[in-house]
Design a protein around this nucleic acid. Sequence first.
DNA 1: TGCGCGTTGGA
DNA 2: CCAACGCGC
Length: 482
Amino acid sequence: MTTSPTLLWFRRDLRLADHRALLYAIELGQPIIPVYLHAEDDGGVWRDGAASQWWLHHALEDLASQLESLGSQLTIYSLESEDQLADFLIQLAEETGAKQIVWSRRYEPHFCQRDRQIKSSLTNAGILAKSFNNSLLYEPDEVKNKSGGHFKVFTPFWKSLKDQPPEKPLPSPVSLASLQPDYWPAGIAVSELNLLPSISWDAGFYKNWLASHQGAEASLKKSLSKAPNYQQTRDTPAIDGTSRLSPYLHFGQLSPRELWHSLNDRFGNDAAIVEGITRQLYWREFSAHTHYHFPHSTDRALKPEYDAFPWNYDEDIIKQWQKGETGYPIVDAGMRELWATGWMHNRVRMITASLLVKHLLQPWQEGARWFWDTLVDADLANNSMGWQWVAGCGADASPYFRIFNPIIQGKKFDPSGDYVRKWIPELAQLPNEYIHEPWTCPPLELISYGVQLDKDYPNPIIDHQKGRQQALDALAEFKSNR
DNA sequence: TGCGCGTTGGA
DNA sequence: CCAACGCGC
């Protein structure tokens, strides 16, 4: 009997557990050839940022080694453009004799459209192409409100779904040795994809992240053990109280179904514990569904009138914000944590974003672009949703006139000042009284703490009251022009 | 998952 | 005097 191998095309599903495409390939009983195809322009204008590429490099190396230990291997290719994907897959199928190609769906509109074309090219070439959901709890097309449309507000979305268990996770295969093909195509090494940054910006990433299956397992285990404290600690950036699972979910190293069921299996009798983390998982789901239904939500306001908002684009201001030199300690701490570790605490993401969009009147897309490039968990749907939420122009967004006071937010969520001290060592000697507003400290006293403003640490980029008023004035102007 | 300000009512 | 509350932005 002649065999016809199955190509298993890996994408943002870099795991072996609860992998429906892999399990389907196993059921076919034919040899399996796992491949990863890297295209320089994968994702179009929202191709992977530098931090995402760093993560991808390590996730691919790890996946390759996991496959090897199961008696298989990962074959990697580099393409100039995603436009070549369909032809390349067809050519690879010819070379290997493959008759089937399976993969996990991506739900970002760019990929939906592109993959639909690839699927039809493959079908026309006589190859069976089949895709599976391995990244969301529910299919965006299947979740509907009572009037048959999709949800535009989070709370009703959450209420309608939270008691509908997603499918149960399925186990990893024990071995793939019996499904080896007679012929392995020749690929390249992960390192040849040049995904690591050329400047040594990623040193801190290694201290904070293990971008592997082992890292995903360890983070899941830790999150489960800390889940009872989640609601009490998740808003305190000095405490490691969040799950830190976002990059694993984004790259598919952790299945959302596995997270959902692990939480429910362990804490099912205590809704408050389950719902803490689950609610955040459903925000991820809500973002993905919203982005699926509003393809332009990366660039255009979901409340279309906000595209005419009088932003005041200023490159120098954006640079100061990026470098963590705004003079607001809680903001600068966040921006420096982001640069140093590829991640920022969620509470601080809201505070830093609010300052850029409100006090500084910079377009939210500029902030979104910076986060996209520097976050290891950069996820197009979550990132766009988050920025539109802060800017007040999203579906179910915080109203524009809600303006975070960076001093009050600092005092409230970093009362010990430890988060600021960790990321802004030049302020480490300030007492709590002044840690979130160093400019209120008498200059001579400040010098005794080793700080001279505008020399060791900047004065505020804009006075809070002035920034707040400016933002409200801009809103009033914008409204009167409509 | 706001802030800021004015009012109110108990001390 | 000031904490608690309500309301408009």
